[in-house]
Design a protein around this nucleic acid. Sequence first.
DNA 1: CCTCCATTCCTACGGTGTAGGTTTCGTTCC
DNA 2: GGAACGAAACCTACACCGTAGGAATGGAGG
Lengths: 218, 218
Amino acid sequence: MARRAQGTAAGLSRERIAAVGVDLVDRHGLDKFGVRRLAEELGVDPMSIYHHIKGKAALLDAVSEAVLTEVVVPAGAEGADGRDWEELARRTAHSYRDMAHRHRRVFPLLTTRPQTSPVALAALERLVASMRAAELPEQVVADTQLTLFGFLNGYLLAVLSGSGDDGVHLPVLDPGCYPTMTALLPLQTGFGSVAEFDRILDTVLAGIKDRAARGTTP
Amino acid sequence: MARRAQGTAAGLSRERIAAVGVDLVDRHGLDKFGVRRLAEELGVDPMSIYHHIKGKAALLDAVSEAVLTEVVVPAGAEGADGRDWEELARRTAHSYRDMAHRHRRVFPLLTTRPQTSPVALAALERLVASMRAAELPEQVVADTQLTLFGFLNGYLLAVLSGSGDDGVHLPVLDPGCYPTMTALLPLQTGFGSVAEFDRILDTVLAGIKDRAARGTTP
DNA sequence: CCTCCATTCCTACGGTGTAGGTTTCGTTCC
DNA sequence: GGAACGAAACCTACACCGTAGGAATGGAGG
């Protein structure tokens, strides 16, 4: 295990560290992720990482920021006049879902850390601007950030943590104690599917539209 | 630091361990929480805990289960005929929110671990039964679990992790880069407030009702 | 009184994050 | 060209963590 001589460049950078970190978490999970494993993967001494990232918390920030950059919605999705906020919201949500499924072990990080990276704020600004251009009530627009991403984070967290590497395993219910839920079980076959996601996303967007309609004509 | 002699009863039990665990996490946060600190607080050797709880993962399960039992909705909230599912949903959501605010540092645990404890299932069964009694479309009822608790978990996670002990601190925005969001900032003063919660809960419920209406008359 | 067993404590091991100091290389300036 | 400097890497060491394995002890049942 011959390491590089001191002083020689290892080509470390915040971006490369984060990228390898994402890959490591994807493969082995958050529990097994640490400075030492990451350093080994990078072919580097553990402490070298600290010259680019301040501590483990900052390291996790970098990792979560890295996966967030994968969320991209092509320009022009909101239509020519920039007013089709609903289409934009749908595309953004789907792109977010895709990212979450690509990186299920990383995803929990996003839901806890306040997202202040430019890439996250830019996406939000775009959506919010589109809604405002469509002249939705301001309070509805202001609440959308929490409504939509609150739902996305909570829903995806539930779906992704309920599924292991071997697939989904729903809990077994006692039909005597929980008759209604047992009866509804057949309707939950598509747990985590795109169809399910679309249904629920639809519900949330319908709620926003409804409140917008009530808000403009009180 | 004289410990108890071996063999003498320390009055340990899963419930007491969990209760003290909740208190400890509330005060010092999840990071500082561990078997050793918990044992010290209980006046007990760390390894004694393992005779009642199998490992750290199970310990966290016990802690999260303990806070979940605090969510109670008085009987009869759904009305005499048991069909006022909306009122029941509102009360359940508020009780859940109250619990989350009482135990902000514990709350993240609930969003990751699959909730299969009887107390959680019972609350869900009750809500779902009420919706079914009101003859909502079955698929809507089946989806409600993920819709409502997805939203609750994601929203509360965002609100609670964005606020430290000193109160809320929203990120500072560059008005040049994010003009719309900056303009909307004044409307976000009640971040984490009950009023905000009610507005967004309203939105989600409106979405469910809307989809129910569309579902029954396609 | 003796046996048994659940409960508790003790020791020890491999792992972690990271503070502090040392070494080396590439650059910059005379 | 040679010396001085700062960035980037490495090394050592420490306190702490989860937990495996085993020894001790007191109370319960015969």
